[in-house]
Amino acid sequence: MRVTEKILNDSLRRSVMDNRERLFNVQTRISANRKNLTLSDDPRAAEKAAQLKANRAELEQFRRNISFGKSTLELSVDALRGVEEQLSRARELAVQFSSGEYTAEDRGLAAAEMGEIYRQVLAYANTRNGSDYVFSGFGSNTPAYSADGVWQGDAGSRQIRIGQVERIAVNAVGADVFGSSTAAGGVPAGGVMRDLRELRTALENNDPAGVRNSIDTMDAGIQSVVSGQATLGTRLKRMEVTESSIGDLVMTIAEQLSGIEDLDIAEMAMELKKQETAFQAAVEVAGRISSMTLLDAVKR
């Protein structure tokens, strides 16, 4: 093989440039702290990373949905708890004033308290979350119950997505928990609202038998509200379980992503050292070889 100066020069230039390129690659990766800088560095990893990221973004959205849903549900639970307290107080009054030893005046005072209880229960049933009446179903601009206690909502179940196919309702429909107080002559024909109104009327009319009847209706109302709380509690529980399993999934994805995208600093540092050494060797060899020439020998 004839080795000319150009062959030496070219091979020197190539090895130095190749080395430079590899050094540059290692350096940019270290400074960006990423294993791959372009899609073509590892197309399969790029594809996988894109899928994982889309997946993670949606999971995080589910988490966001759940945290919003939980606060909405908790609002309803609080309202139901309030209604339960008021109904318990109404039942106490019913038990107390069903006994014959009270005067009409006593019952009149109790009726006044019942009026207050009714207003409280109505306020709870018309709880708002922002501009939405939470017990109204989809017609959330309209209060769930009119001042007279007539049901004005619908059966709309407000759901959120907590999985790609899983959904969960974040509202309780007023009619389900407070009874279907449909209108009859402008007043409710059933449900908690009617029962409260009847108790007050019985007290006003000084009617111990009517008051006694209300003990049962109050019991029924309390039971309905408590079971409503239980339903919402179950949903809250389910959201919490889902939330924590989403948390686990997000962690797993983060680990996978890190495996795909993150730089192994120790490995890169070694690679850098290796490339530096190779670079120095290439330059040194080049220096030696190019100093060996016949021109020096034939100089006079």
Binding site: T38, L39, S40, P43, A46, E47, Q51
Partner: peptide, 15 residues
Amino acid sequence: PDYIAGMLGQIGSET
């Protein structure tokens, strides 16, 4: 999302 990921992978491997 899978289509986008696939498209990125494809462009990467073509490059």
